[in-house]
């Protein structure tokens, strides 16, 4: 039997309708244009796209914050467009947003992590247990009694992830979680996300426009103007440098360098992702 997909989108369309003061339709902007997406449990999925490509709109659908204009979306076997499923969908697909400050509700770290479980009616003792577990899983346990205002951006974002984890979701959607962080914070957050995927087996959907962050993903979707324009493993995506540049995505420097070297005649393989790979490829060229 085929394993059930945790997220299954078929022909998903979303239109933002702008109205003038009388309520007449002024303009229709199609943010999602017949998007198909299948995600299996435990996968690490990355969705790439420049600003305005519709990737955030897609994320909000998975969390039932937006309802599709057309098409269907099933999250963990439940129809996300149905009103009665909204709370179930939000519980099984947690969401982390871009701005770390604007998603922390409480003024103590542990209380913020407890906010989600409180909302879904988890008994008090279990809340404490979940808070401890999820803070530990992102390595923030020692900051449990701190004020979020005194934490760095990366730490705040990890608290936000812990807050989602405490609701025991099957899947976490991260909407550009590193866009407002410095390189160190970015590394911290990605490490925590990867650990959750590997150790806790949580399905991850990472939405980003930094191509470096998708190198470790199982599968990558590239979006442009509301459509999924490319999909495949990171290696197969990164081997199509020209096409990526067409979609205004900046290819990682290593991949770009390898690509340029190949174009000028060196016999090295396509889709080089890391510095080590390039070094190896160059060494083998030298030996020949």
């Amino acid at each position: 039997m085929k394993e059930q997909n945790i997220i299954e989108a078929k022909g998903l369309v979303h239109e933002y309708i702008r109205r003038d003061e009388e309520g007449n339709v002024e303009a229709i902007q199609t943010a999602l244009d017949h998007v198909n997406l299948d995600v299996r449990p435990g996968q690490f999925i990355a969705i790439l796209g420049h600003n305005g490509s519709g990737k955030s709109t897609l994320a909000k659908h998975i969390n039932a914050l937006l309802a599709p204009t057309e098409g269907t979306l099933y999250v963990d076997g439940k129809d996300a467009s149905k009103e009665e499923n909204v709370w179930d969908v939000r519980q099984s697909a947690g969401m982390v947003f871009q701005n770390p400050d604007n998603q922390i509700i409480a003024s103590v770290v542990e209380e913020d992590v407890g906010f989600g479980p409180e909302n879904i009616g988890v008994p008090t003792e279990e809340i404490w247990q979940r808070v401890e577990e999820s803070l530990k899983s992102v390595g923030m346990l020692e900051y449990r009694t701190h004020s979020p205002n005194k934490l760095s951006g990366g730490q705040k974002q990890r608290v936000a992830i812990a807050g989602v984890m405490a609701m025991k979701p099957k899947c976490i959607v991260l909407d550009e979680p590193t866009a407002m962080l410095d390189p160190l914070g970015r590394k911290e957050v990605l490490k925590a996300v990867r650990a959750l995927n590997k150790q806790a087996g949580v399905t991850i959907i990472l939405i980003t426009h930094y191509m470096e962050e998708v190198v470790n993903a199982d599968y990558v979707f590239v979006m442009d103007e509301g459509k999924v324009v490319m999909k495949g493993t990171p290696r197969s995506i990164f081997s199509q440098v020209e096409e990526l540049q067409e979609y205004r995505l900046s290819v990682p420097q290593i991949t770009l360098l390898a690509h340029e070297l190949k174009k000028s005649g060196l016999p090295i393989p396509d889709g080089i992702l890391t510095r080590d790979e390039l070094v190896e490829a160059l060494l083998s060229v030298g030996q020949q």
Binding site: R90, I105, P117
Partner: peptide
């Protein structure tokens, strides 16, 4: 910020005081 926060709260299943437990 208020807009963002409201969305983040909703994403974490906040729906008022009804059926809520306390940490």
């Amino acid at each position: 910020r208020a807009n963002d926060l409201a969305m983040a709260m909703e994403a974490r299943c906040y729906h008022g005081g009804h059926g809520r437990t306390k940490m």
